[in-house]
Design a protein around this nucleic acid. Structure first.
Lengths: 136, 136
DNA sequence: GAGTGGTAGTCTCAAAAAGAGACCAGCACT
DNA sequence: AGTGCTGGTCTCTTTTTGAGACTACCACTC
């Protein structure tokens, strides 16, 4: 996607897209965003954007995720078409997860936000510190 | 942010930023992203990017949010420095919420993802339908 | 002067989601 | 025969979210 395309659209238009012109509760844009803002979705997508990984590799790569949430997040990403799951008939069978073209395309858009977070986490940290002062 | 800056960075680098070079559980990038992926954060940010709103206006604008979650999400966005809260001494007092410069900057980055969702929600819907077939 | 409505919330309880950790089957290796 | 690796599932507890009643203050109407 050409970045100028986004910048030419008004913020109002993006908001309207999220509310689907009145169909607020059942809006497709919110539906898609909803599937991406789980606690682990973006981290796992970022890992798989680097290279394909097996289940156990992902678990070791992200030590603070529980097996249960790893299973479920991968299932959700697969259901929405971002991730491909391939079983190899080794003994014991191994399972490889990789990004689909759709997943790669989504991650390209997500990267702007990740990059922003990397550049600005100091500002957010400062804001939190200042806010705690006003509350005290 | 210049879009080329992002595209020149490898996916590996973005992943490394999310894992903070080993400090995976307590990574500032994940910390910032975490604050943004609540169910209502992106929708409220999009609304406030359009124009400032008062509490009751936001509640009417987003009918399926509970007062409790509206209060809490606005509190979180204010704490992280994205939103400014101003009380006006009218009778009864009214409260106006608006984006800060930091919030505007963040929303610019978020917009790429919202735009992607708007362009690709059909593909996600198709993926879900296809996935249900394979499960049945 | 009693009721109605609009302001911005808080409080409580129920439901849903996430986290922790035990448990499983199958096979290879020692 | 025991140990470890594979990729999970199952159960229980804690956290997060949702629904809805309730508050205090004031203006306006009847």
């Amino acid at each position: 996607m050409d970045s100028r395309t986004v910048n030419l659209r008004s913020k109002l238009e993006v908001y309207k897209a999220m509310t689907d012109g009145g169909n607020i509760a059942d809006c497709p844009v919110r539906d898609v965003i909803q599937g991406l803002n789980g606690k682990w979705s973006s981290l796992l997508t970022a890992a798989l954007a680097e290279q394909p990984y097996r289940f156990g590799e992902l678990r070791r790569l992200v030590p603070d995720i529980s097996q249960r949430m790893l299973t479920q997040t991968l299932y959700d990403l697969q259901r929405d078409g971002y991730v491909r799951r391939e079983v190899f008939p080794t003994k014991p069978p191994s399972v490889e997860y990789s990004l689909t073209d759709l997943g790669r395309s989504m991650f390209d858009a997500l990267q702007y936000l990740l990059q922003w977070a990397e550049n600005n986490h100091d500002a957010v940290r400062d804001a939190r510190a200042a806010f705690e002062q006003t509350q005290a």
